[in-house]
Amino acid sequence: MESSKHIFVLVPSFNEGRVVHTTVTPLLEKGYTVVVIDDCSTDNTFDELKNSGVHYLKHEVNLGQGAALQTGIEYALENGAEYAVTFDADGQHDYTEIPALLQPVIEGKADITMGSRFLRKEDIEQVPPMRKLVLKGAIIVNGLLTGLWLTDAHNGFRAMNRKAMQCIYLRENRMAHASEILSQVKLHKLRFQEVPVKITYTDYSKVKGQSSMNSVNILIDLLLKKIL
C-alpha cells in the first residue's frame, strides 16, 4: 500500500458546516491528505475546520461542484499527489471503502474508478425509489451523450491516478461535470472501472443533496454544451 499521505482526498464543500468536521475527521485519522475546497460557503465551514489539519482552499465566488473538484485536482497535482479520491462533504460516502475504490488504480488496472451504488443488491435497496428513477434516466442520458454505459450516474465517489488527473479538465462548473468526466475518460481513452460502494441517505444528505428537479437543469446544460 502506498503511503496514505500521497493519497489526496478532495472534499468539495458548500455550506456543509454542520457535517464537514465529522466527514473529514476519519479521513485525517487514516492519514490521507484531506483537501477541502470551500465553494464560498456562507456558514461556519471554516470555523469547523480551523483546527482540523485539512488543506483549505476557498473559492471567493460560488462556482459549483465541478469547479471545486477541478481546483482540488490542480492542487493535488501541484502538491505531489499520487492518487486523488473525490469525496462528498455531506457524509453520504463511506471512508472505509476508499481502499477498495483505490485498489484497481494502485494495482495499475485502471486510471480512474467510479463508485456505483447499483452493483450490490444491498446498496441498491438503499436508494430511494424517486432517486433511482432519476439516476436511471441520467445513466441513459450519459450513455447516449458520452458512449460510456455505466451502472450509476452522478456518484461523486471516484479515485484516479496522476494520469487521469492530468487528462481531466472540467469546464462544466456545476453538476453537469459528472457527465463531463465520462466524456473525458472516453476522449483520453482512460482505463476505468466501476467499484461497488454504499451511499448513506441520511435525512441531512437528502435535504442537502440535489433535488430531482435539478436533473432537468443538468440535462439542459449538457444539451446546450452539445449544441453550442
Binding site: 483546527n51 482540523s52 485539512v54 488543506h55 483549505y56 482552499l57 473559492h59 469547479a67 501541484e78
Partner: peptide
C-alpha cells in the same frame, strides 16, 4: 471568472493545523 477564482484559491491555500 472561474480561472481567476481558482488561481486565488490555489495561491491562498492553507494547511489548517492541529492546535
Amino acid at each position: 471568472q472561474t480561472e481567476l477564482v481558482r488561481k486565488i484559491a490555489l495561491r491562498d491555500a492553507q494547511k489548517l493545523n492541529h492546535p
